[in-house]
Amino acid sequence: TEVDLHLGDITIKLKDVSEEIVKRAKELFKNGWSAEFVKKWIEEAVK
């Protein structure tokens, strides 16, 4: 499945990412993480 994760003005296309990771990524962004950091976190999380 593909998900578009909207973080501010940046959209990250996610492939084969669990709902849990998407939820967590949104929380991290809301908590002040930059979109770049969230993207890196996701990449690490799906390895």
Rank of each mutant, 00 (worst) to 15 (best):
S34K: 06
K30A: 15
D4A: 14
W41K: 00
I12S: 03
I42C: 04
W33C: 12
L7S: 01
F29R: 01
V17I: 09
V3C: 08
D16F: 07
K40R: 10
F37A: 15
E2M: 15
A45R: 06
E27D: 10
V46G: 07
V46H: 07
A35K: 04
L14H: 03
W41C: 01
I10R: 03
E20Y: 10
V22M: 08
E43A: 08
A35W: 08
E44L: 07
V17R: 01
E2C: 11
K15N: 12
V22K: 04
S18T: 08
V22D: 00
E44C: 09
N31Y: 08
K15M: 11
F29A: 03
K13I: 12
E19T: 10
D16L: 04
E44W: 10
L14Q: 01
E2T: 13
I10N: 05
R24K: 15
N31F: 09
K13E: 08
L5S: 02
E36S: 09
A35V: 13
L28P: 00
V46Q: 09
D16H: 08
A35Q: 04
K26H: 11
I12K: 01
I12T: 02
L5C: 04
S34Q: 06
I12N: 03
H6Q: 15
K47A: 15
A35H: 06
D9Q: 07
K23Y: 11
E19F: 09
V46R: 06
E2F: 14
F29G: 01
V38A: 01
K30E: 14
D16V: 04
V22W: 06
A25F: 03
T1V: 13
V38I: 14
T11C: 08
E44V: 06
V3G: 08
E27L: 08
G32N: 03
F37N: 14
V3H: 10
D4I: 15
I12W: 02
K13D: 09
K13F: 13
E44G: 05
E2Q: 09
E19W: 13
A45G: 03
V38Y: 00
A25V: 04
T11R: 03
V38H: 00
I42R: 00
A35P: 09
L14Y: 05
I21R: 00
E27P: 00
N31T: 10
F37L: 13
K15W: 14
V46E: 04
S18Y: 04
V38P: 00
L7V: 04
D4T: 15
W41Y: 11
W41G: 00
V17M: 04
A25H: 00
K15R: 12
E20C: 12
A35I: 13
D9A: 10
S18W: 05
S34L: 06
G8T: 03
E36M: 09
K13W: 10
I42K: 00
K40Q: 15
A25K: 00
I42M: 04
G8V: 03
E43M: 13
K15V: 14
K13L: 14
A25D: 00
D4G: 05
D9Y: 06
E36R: 03
L28T: 00
E36D: 11
K30Y: 12
I21P: 00
V22N: 01
T11D: 04
K39E: 09
K47T: 11
F29V: 05
K39R: 15
K39T: 10
E44I: 07
G32L: 03
K26R: 11
V22G: 03
K15I: 14
S34H: 06
F29C: 03
E2K: 06
K40V: 11
E36W: 05
T11K: 05
V38M: 02
I10W: 06
S34T: 12
K23N: 14
K30S: 13
A45L: 08
L14N: 02
K39V: 14
I10G: 03
K15Q: 11
V46L: 14
L5K: 02
E44H: 10
K23T: 14
A35E: 05
D4C: 15
I42G: 00
L7N: 02
H6G: 04
D16T: 03
E43K: 06
V3A: 09
E19D: 13
K30H: 13
A35T: 07
E36H: 07
V3Q: 10
W33T: 06
D9H: 12
I21C: 03
K30G: 11
K40C: 13
F29E: 01
K26N: 11
L14D: 02
I21E: 01
V22I: 15
G32Y: 02
H6P: 06
N31W: 10
V46K: 07
I42V: 09
A45P: 01
V46A: 07
S34P: 11
G8Y: 03
K15A: 09
N31L: 14
S18A: 12
A25I: 04
V3W: 12
E27N: 06
I10Q: 10
R24D: 05
E2Y: 14
I10L: 11
E2N: 10
T11V: 15
G8P: 02
E44F: 07
K23I: 12
G32F: 03
W33H: 15
I10C: 13
I21F: 06
K40I: 12
E20D: 13
K40E: 13
G32D: 01
K26L: 15
S34M: 06
L28A: 03
K40L: 14
E27A: 06
E43D: 09
V46P: 02
R24G: 11
E2V: 12
G8H: 04
A25Q: 00
E43S: 07
I12M: 06
H6I: 15
V3E: 12
K40P: 00
K30F: 11
G32T: 02
E2A: 11
S18E: 06
E2R: 09
K13M: 13
E19G: 08
T1K: 15
L7K: 01
T11S: 10
V17N: 01
I42Y: 02
I42Q: 00
K47R: 13
E43Y: 08
N31M: 13
S34W: 04
K40Y: 10
K15D: 08
I10H: 09
E20I: 09
G8W: 04
E19L: 11
I21M: 07
T1G: 13
G32Q: 02
V22E: 03
K40S: 12
E44Y: 07
S18M: 06
E20S: 10
W33R: 08
E20F: 09
G32I: 01
I10M: 13
L28K: 03
A25T: 01
E36N: 07
I10P: 02
I10Y: 10
V22Q: 07
L14A: 03
D9L: 10
L5Q: 02
T1F: 13
V17P: 04
H6W: 09
E27I: 08
K47W: 04
E20M: 07
I10T: 12
V22T: 05
S34C: 07
K13T: 14
